[in-house]
């Protein structure tokens, strides 16, 4: 027992067999022929292990898609889709743990602590995509709103993972559909829409169309 991965799998095995967290780090370490000190060299707490498993999966999904030959040709929308498909595929290998972990973290408002690492990772990924999209004109640059795009994508992350947790279709095919639709809707909203033109037109008329209200500057 001398690597982070081994501790992770021992922990997963424990919670899935017993249905609950170990009573203490002391007990868990002893069961696995570790000293407490050795345990703390890797993780600060049991939640820390869970967080690292999630972050690991997310990181792996990212690395996997970014290594695909086609990655550079993808638009922001396609990159996001590709990431989610890869993530869901990876989650499948640890489905029992993921379900356990989601259930344990409960229905809290905001991000559960075990997903903090994932959130950081995902947000920096999403910000990069948004920048790329704005630059290429794929996404509309809206004052105040552009910086919120990544939050909307994080909400999609939650929706998709929860949808998958409840999905009982063969091969989780429904989740594939949920990803395709959800991400497309989100990116449609990010893109230039008639509302942008309308807003722009309104602004123009206000300034030039003789509708200018009587204000002094």
């Amino acid at each position: 027992m001398n690597s982070a991965e081994e501790i992770q799998s021992a922990y997963i095995d424990y919670v899935l067999t017993k249905g609950t967290k170990p009573a203490s780090v002391y007990v868990f370490a002893k069961d696995n022929n570790l000293t407490e000190e050795e345990f703390y060299n890797f993780f600060g707490s049991f939640d820390g292990i869970e967080e690292s498993i999630w972050t690991g999966l997310c990181q792996k999904a990212l690395t996997e898609v970014q290594n695909q030959e086609i990655w550079d040709q993808y638009s922001s929308r396609e990159k996001t889709l590709a990431f989610f498909y890869a993530l869901i595929e990876l989650l499948k290998s640890k489905r029992s743990f993921v379900l356990y972990s989601l259930k344990q973290s409960g229905q809290t408002i905001g991000t559960p602590s075990i997903l903090k690492g994932v959130k950081n990772l995902f947000e920096s990924f999403a910000s990069g995509l948004v920048d790329q999209g704005v630059e290429s004109g794929e996404l509309a640059d809206r004052r105040f709103l552009t910086s919120k795009y990544k939050d909307a994508l994080w909400i999609q992350f939650g929706v998709i993972v929860n949808f998958w947790a409840k999905d009982s279709s063969a091969g989780f095919e429904k989740t594939d559909e949920a990803i395709e639709k959800g991400i497309n809707v989100t990116f449609d909203l990010f893109g230039k829409s008639p509302l942008d033109s309308l807003f722009d037109y309104g602004k123009f008329m206000m300034n030039n169309g003789g509708m200018k209200p009587n204000v002094k500057f």
Binding site: I70, Y74, E78, L81, A82, Y85, E89, E180
Partner: peptide, 10 residues
């Protein structure tokens, strides 16, 4: 979308 095609293959 392209990613869904890749997904179907994997």
């Amino acid at each position: 979308s392209g990613p869904l095609i890749v997904r179907t293959f994997t």
